[in-house]
């Protein structure tokens, strides 16, 4: 389960950082058929499709947060997935947890990683591609080390691109 408090904190952070209206919707059950028995993981593309189907009509973008380990058919795992320039994205906190890597739980670290990954996937939704700046949120992270090295902000050029692309909805 994704802790309730963490979702609210994320909502406030995204609202402040992106200057966009943000709300938390109702919980969505993990879609049936997204479980990959032989891999003991969940198919992120399937879940993404379901999120899109259930998205409120007024949603500009929608990010699903899930506490299951995600994968796509060609990759051993993913931290998240997004429609490039589309509406929906998903972030898994399973591998962002310290305990996944044999360390003691740390909500502070988990939250920081979640913020980075949510902003990363949202960046894709707004049409941004991966950035070569290792500290930029849009840098491709294949490991939590990569995630931790990134700052919680976009680099100058990604920030500008996002600013322009989200202009219509800014509050």
């Amino acid at each position: 389960m994704v802790p309730d408090g963490m979702l609210r904190k994320l909502r406030d952070h995204l609202h402040d950082y992106l200057s966009l209206p943000v709300r938390v919707t109702r919980n969505m059950p993990v879609p049936e058929g997204s479980y990959e028995r032989n891999r003991n993981q969940y198919n992120s593309t399937r879940i993404l499709g379901e999120i899109l189907r259930q998205a409120p009509t007024d949603a500009i973008k929608i990010v699903g947060i899930i506490d299951k380990d995600l994968c796509i058919p060609i990759l051993t795992f993913v931290f998240g997935e997004a429609q490039l320039g589309g509406v929906a994205s998903i972030v898994s906190i399973a591998r962002l947890r310290q305990e996944f890597h044999g360390l003691s739980p740390d909500d502070g670290i988990l939250f920081e990683r979640l913020v980075k990954e949510a902003l990363h996937e949202l960046g894709h939704n707004f049409g941004l591609i991966h950035c070569s700046d290792r500290e930029c949120i849009m840098y491709l992270s294949n490991t939590v080390r990569d995630v931790d090295r990134k700052k919680t902000t976009y680099c100058g050029s990604c920030d500008t691109a996002l600013y322009l692309k989200s202009e219509t909805w800014r509050v």
């Binding site: 058919p73 990759l75 997935e81 997004a82 591609i129 991966h130 491709l140």
Partner: peptide, 17 residues
Amino acid sequence: DEEIVRESLAGWLGDDG
């Protein structure tokens, strides 16, 4: 030949520019 592979790999590589 598998659509799902084509799609997910294309999506992932597309994100990478």
